[in-house]
Design a protein around this nucleic acid. Structure first.
Lengths: 229, 229, 229, 229
DNA sequence: TATGAATGAGCCTTCATTCAT
DNA sequence: AATGAATGAAGGCTCATTCAT
């Protein structure tokens, strides 16, 4: 049911948002030039000011435009894997997270833009946090919590979340490094799936290890069980 | 052997390199202004082009200037922990890596600059890779390899390395996010030590889990064997 | 005979003229923005060019719209004080002139607009001269002439007129200066009345002095004669 | 002793100030374009920002540059006519004031700029008041006060000052009107002298009339005389 | 060797006007 | 008759670089 849009059929406003998303992702807010954006959108230089007030306004519009859809995607994803075991939920989360982050299809631009905003915050940082980062973080935290039980302190859960997210984000933030260390990794669907498997396995091992060892202020480490994974 | 430099005693060239390092780390290459750099170095506006040819040349000089010392630091570190068990070597590596990345002392600027270069590569990317990233990567790879033995494929080792590095780098790249999710984490020495403990424990668990499960993307984990870990 | 207009009942054209008058007076022709005018008139951005051809056309329309009423006002005023002695006529003239210039009621906008046009002429200058300035000037000239008799040359009468007008206009053109030199002068009705008294008395003294001394630029004032004044 | 400067011999900074003074006087601060100024000064577009920070900074520099000389001129003028009778002092004041206001020689630019600032205040208004307006006002007030004695209230003196200044300023602010009403007045030296005579005579008559009549808030109203009005 | 001045390309933004419906 | 969108010229300003001494 994916409609194919010819840019010609979109109005100027939509073309600007689309072009801006691509260029902001490629170059970052500061380095992006509105002249490049309007050229790509086949619009007039003054159109940005007319529709969005300023370059910053356009940036905020890009975020707002995608946030509704992103929220829905997340809730679908959470709902869809709610009845599965925690490890499977984690697998779903990581795979989807990586897809959004690494896939080059235009519908997944936001992941890259969000990643950029984490590394190089702009005035829209709070908006990004609220609309994208925190919802995803809470989803992940719920999964991790369901894996470790109620006993471990919040701090342990939080650090495990950040360890998971950090592993994923690295492949987006440090693409160039990855392409040097692992030239065969071409960010295709298959690569991403295998990477997801790795991160999930690594993280499951990490989480269980922490629960077992009870470090990081853990109050009651539970004994390891045979079916842990 | 740490010489104390009074800025007044440094020549213009050295003052420029020092000031540039600080500002490039704070703002990135693109956003840094040479006027700010020369102001901080108490030098003339034309000094950058005179001494280094261009803003890019100054950036390269900053990297070159620090690379020798960095190499030495790394080899000392590697030598120092060579006789310890792999887990302890990993602990040393992670702790040092995090210190360089997160500590605000001026002598550790390069870690942040390298982190920035991974996320936002410039013309100096290759130089950075060669002088900083690859040496550290090889050191980490050797540690991981010594943990898993000769059997597991190179791909598994590489991914474990990136999982370790990704966890560390996230705390530098996404400082703003961390400060929202964990406001009490203030990047002090104690915080960094505890964080290192977490990442080491998490990563040991992850590595062992992957060794247990046999391959990077194996669907059917084999039963754990006695000599695991 | 003052009709009360509800802005809602005026058509776009009339609302534009009204809004434009206010904004042109406040900011001058050059600094006024048609976007502000149409916003105030609750009209479309294209309405100005549609109805008046251009910003300049709107400005001309504002002047035209008010000129008919202004002419009538002046003739009423002249007729009303025709049978009084010249000094009383001058008092009427100055008081009315100042009221139009200094009072903030919207029905007296034109005085301020005319004052602005004198100081900063635009393409509409000739229109303003013909419709507003010259009629008033001729009225004032007639009063002065009736005070000095037929003997004094036209030049003397003209300069006296300009001296009277200059005194009045200063309080409009240099409002900011007046508010510094005389902070208690708040352009209220009472202030304006007292100011009119001053200017009339000062000007009567000036005119009589010049008549006594005989010529405009006499170097050696002749002794006063019995029939002076 | 008037040195002739060839613009080529002035440095960029001075050429900018000179060109800016002329253009600011001609067009006002808002309408003046820095591209026109730098073209006239034969300088680069970035020179304004380099030397003065901004267009506003250049405007302030123009004022500052002329203020020192203006202060000195005024004090010389005051000293020079101190021993003369008040009427002669007034004649000196008005003549000098008019010359600065109306003469087209470049050394007298400030008068016109100050006049413009009174009518259309900018951010530099306070500076202009302090450096130009108030000193001249105090000089004039002293002259008027010496003419009327100590008895009349300050308000009367102030209004007489404003009446004198208003007459003078009108010939600058409303040049276009004057050129219509009095086409032969060409702002030459002779015209200005005769105008000064008129304004002085008119004002002397005005001041004396007011002292005689004791109006405008006089504390002790004298009994009305038969020949009043 | 080292500097303060000068340069020009290019940035975001503003604004009166025109277009297409 | 009237509108919202679109236009393009032009504005002030920034910045790495080069010039002239």
């Amino acid at each position: 049911m994916n409609m194919l849009f010819d840019d010609q059929q979109l109005d100027t406003r939509a073309r600007l948002v689309k072009a801006a998303a691509a260029i902001f992702v490629e170059q970052g807010f500061g380095a992006a030039k509105v002249r490049d954006i309007v050229a790509r959108a086949d619009a007039n230089i003054a159109a940005v000011n007319y529709h969005f007030g300023s370059k910053e306004g356009l940036y905020a519009a890009v975020i707002q435009y995608h946030s509704a859809q992103a929220m829905e995607n997340l809730s679908q994803q959470v709902t869809g894997s709610r009845r599965r075991v925690p490890a499977a939920q984690l697998r779903d989360f990581v795979r989807t997270f990586l897809q959004r982050l690494l896939t080059d299809t235009p519908q997944f631009t936001m992941g890259k833009l969000v990643a950029r905003e984490m590394v190089e915050p702009t005035a829209a940082f709070n908006l990004i946090m609220e609309k994208f980062v925190l919802p995803q973080y809470h989803a992940l935290r719920a999964i991790i919590r369901s894996m470790v039980g109620a006993a471990p302190p919040e701090e342990l859960v939080r650090r495990c979340c950040l360890s998971v997210v950090g592993q994923c984000l690295y492949y987006q933030s440090a693409r160039q490094v990855v392409s040097v260390l692992d030239p065969e990794f071409d960010y295709g669907e298959k690569d991403i799936d295998r990477l997801a498997e790795h991160i999930v396995a690594f993280s499951l091992g990490g989480v269980h290890q922490l629960v077992r060892s009870g470090t990081t202020a853990a109050r009651k480490p539970r004994p390891a069980r045979a079916d842990d994974r």
